[in-house]
Design a protein around this nucleic acid. Structure first.
Lengths: 114, 114
DNA sequence: CTCCTTATACGATAAGCATCGTACTACGAT
DNA sequence: ATCGTAGTACGATGCTTATCGTATAAGGAG
């Protein structure tokens, strides 16, 4: 990969508006919900978003640049994880409430489709 | 005013993405922060946003249509208040954490400008 | 009624963003 | 060295949105 080093914002650079904007998208919210539920490093390819690969790349970058996720290369894969400690320290309760709401909405959507 | 009746989403119509999107703007976040701090009905003109009046109107509408605020006419004024009970019921902890973070960021900005 | 304040409507504009396809790179396995 | 998998880069495109100015409407005060 050309970009061997992935830039992440420092904790003090993480801005509330950017985090909220990153979370205010169905695809990215799905990624965050997934990461929160499995609570481990996850490759981009593990989460099946209903968009193209290039769009998927875009969403992961938005999440990383907002400070929501951490990304590292492991071979050809790029592993993603939530920056939970950083977010909890900066915005106590925010991630929990958003994820809880996202989980609930996802469950409602599941039920509606059955 | 032409629109005597202001449409608000029902509680069950409020969507997480829409709320997050509404909050992910500096102007609107400022409105929400202000409303939360004073904890009463506030006229649009009471909050000094650094944008034109028409843009201000736009931001209030986004907040209302997302289900974040309630708006009612009182004479020529339009009074705004947070839909705190609805939001707390739907997304427990979300509003509190966002407002707390917004207050903190606002204080940091104040300090930096002094 | 006339004036002032408050806010809206409307049209325009410029920027941002989600999306795509195609071509490409990096790495691991064969 | 070749192939396959995983992801990026680079336009391009069309939609959304933040912004403005001007004209307008509604209500209160004189």
């Amino acid at each position: 990969m050309t970009g061997r080093v992935l830039e992440h914002p420092e904790v003090e650079e993480i801005r509330l508006e950017a985090v909220l904007h990153a979370l205010a998208d169905p695809m990215r919210l799905e990624v965050v919900r997934f990461l929160s539920c499995v609570d481990r490093e996850v490759a981009c390819s593990e989460i099946d978003l209903v968009v193209s690969k290039s769009t998927t790349t875009h969403h992961y970058r938005v999440l990383r640049e907002a400070g929501v996720i951490n990304q590292v290369y492991r071979g050809t894969a790029k592993m993603n994880s939530l920056r939970r400690a950083d977010l909890d320290a900066l915005f106590p309760g925010l991630l929990d409430s958003v994820v809880a709401a996202a989980v609930r909405e996802a469950e409602q959507a599941d039920q509606a489709s059955v």
